[in-house]
Structure formats: C-alpha cells, structure tokens
C-alpha cells in the first residue's frame, strides 16, 4: 500500500463577484514511503493548493486523499503530527517573539508531549540534526540568517516524527550555497529517518537533486508523471521541454539571452 494516494482530486475556489475557479482538475498521484515526489510547475499551476490539501488545511472539492490507507479528510481533525510542512519564507513561517527552542518545541508539545529533561534532550538532538548548535536554541529568529532559520523550520517539521513532509519551495529563496547545503540536509534526513517528501518547486535543478519521482502540473492539470530521474531526463513532452528551455545557462558560452558578446573596452 502506498503511503499517499491522491485519487481524482479536484479543487475549486469560490470567489466573490467572480465565477468560481477550478485550480486542480482530477489529479491522481501515488507516493511510496521513503521517497520524494517532485511537484513541478509554474506560478499558479496549483502546486501549493495540492500541498495545502495534503496538509489538511483544506478539503478537496471532489476526490480523496488516502494517507496510509485512511481518507485524510474523513475525520473532523485531519491535521495530526504525521504531515508537516516547510515553507519558502522562513522569516514569515516563525513567530519572531519565540526562541528557536520554543519554535521547535511546538509540534513536540502538541503531538509527542515530552517533559523536562527528555524534552530538552530531544530539542538538542533536533537542532544538532539540522546542523546547528545546542546554544542556538535560546536565540530568536532575527539572530539567524535565512539559511539557518530554514534549518530551524526543518527541525520543527521533523520534531513530531511525521510520515510526510511537504516542502513548499523550501529552498527557493536561499542563495546558491545555502540551497545546496539545505538540499544535502534534506537528502540526509530522508535517508537516515526514512522520511517521505512532497517537494513543491519550480526549480528543475533542485528537484533533480532531491526527488525520486516527478509530477508536472500545468493550470491545475497533471500533464506528466515520471517514476524516476531517468524517465524524467528522457521525457520529451512539451511541458518538460518548456521547463528545460526556461533553465538558465550554466556557463556564459551557453547563454541564450545575451546574444552579443561582451564589449571589450
């Protein structure tokens, strides 16, 4: 049985004074435990809406999300600790008045309920797992860089030992160096703890580094689903082709925008 089965999910947003907008059309996907699914598409394709449905923040208009064999939205309180999220903007994702310890402890206190020394020990383990130091626990968000704060957000996401983590553009606003480090961290955590990810991104390079399978959304429709990196690399359909063409040159010799050679003084 797959950990996650998205079964013919459609989602409609009702709007005031405007016709309702269907943002997801009949999307079906499956994801096995311990794997990472890349959810790719341009802005407005419906990636984040699907993420919100997985988190239980919204209920699909039609269709079912089966999580571990259970209808995710059948119960009154679909959110439990088993699905966590890491957002793009880490500064917006944390309360600036809480310390790193408070931030990481929130899911811990909600779902695991550790006390005293055991709780403190767990916080230390968590912050060290994401490559920060125990002394960082007493710091506030403003004292961290974007990359460090994203590590705190990841520590918070893994704190309650979730089955699935939704990474919604989790590396998109990081600089090159941090992006690489955070991707490596996510890959390590996945391997060590058997974590399962849904990685929402428009960054094809980042997706290729982390994901095992790839789904492409365009205007709310699933237009491609590739079970492996090899299949994704070999794909020739127009959606993947458009993504490849949107990639920027790696070396100035491959540049396509600036056709003229640099002017020499």
């Amino acid at each position: 049985m797959s950990l996650l089965q998205i079964d013919q999910v459609s989602h409609v947003y009702k709007r005031r004074f405007q016709p309702a907008k269907t943002v997801l059309h009949d999307v079906s996907l499956t994801l096995e435990a311990g794997r990472c699914l890349g959810l790719l598409g341009s802005s407005g394709a419906g990636k984040s809406t699907l993420g919100r449905l997985l988190l239980g923040l919204e209920r699909p208009t039609t269709g079912t999300i089966w999580f571990n064999g259970v209808d995710r939205h059948a119960t009154q309180r679909p959110f439990q600790g088993d699905v966590q999220v890491v957002f793009q903007d880490s500064f917006a994702a944390v309360n600036p008045k809480l310390t790193a310890a408070d931030i990481i402890a929130e899911p811990l206190d909600n779902f695991i309920r550790l006390k005293g020394e055991a709780r403190q020990q767990r916080l230390v383990t968590l912050i060290e797992q994401v490559g920060l130091k125990a002394t960082d626990l007493t710091k506030y968000p403003a004292q961290f860089s974007g990359g460090q704060l994203q590590r705190i957000a990841i520590a918070r996401a893994i704190a309650a030992e979730p089955r699935l983590i939704v990474l919604d553009e989790a590396v998109s606003s990081l600089d090159m160096v941090n992006k690489r480090l955070i991707l490596a961290l996510l890959a390590d955590l996945k391997r060590l703890h058997g974590l399962t990810y849904v990685f929402i991104t428009h960054d094809i390079k980042a997706a290729e580094q982390l994901c095992d399978s790839f789904a492409i959304l365009e205007q709310g429709r699933l237009v491609g689903h590739y079970p492996s990196l090899a299949a994704f690399d070999a794909a020739t359909d127009p959606a993947v082709e458009r993504m490849r063409q949107a990639k920027l040159a790696v070396h100035p010799r491959q540049r396509t925008i600036r056709k003229t050679q640099p002017n020499k003084g």
Binding site: M176, V177, L248, A249, V250, P252, I257, R258, P262
Partner: peptide, 26 residues
C-alpha cells in the same frame, strides 16, 4: 537585455545565481 541594447543602459546586476550572471553579464 532589451533595455540595455535599446537605450544603452549601464547595469549593475546583483545576483547569487551564477546562471543569471552567465546569461547577461560582461
């Protein structure tokens, strides 16, 4: 790039993405 080519605008292009730099910079 079109703005540069049309109006001869001098640009300081700040980016941490070397792909952006590879595409445009002199």
């Amino acid at each position: 790039e079109r703005m540069r080519a049309t109006y001869g605008t001098a640009m300081l292009l700040i980016s941490h993405d070397l792909g952006v730099i590879a595409e445009l910079a002199d």
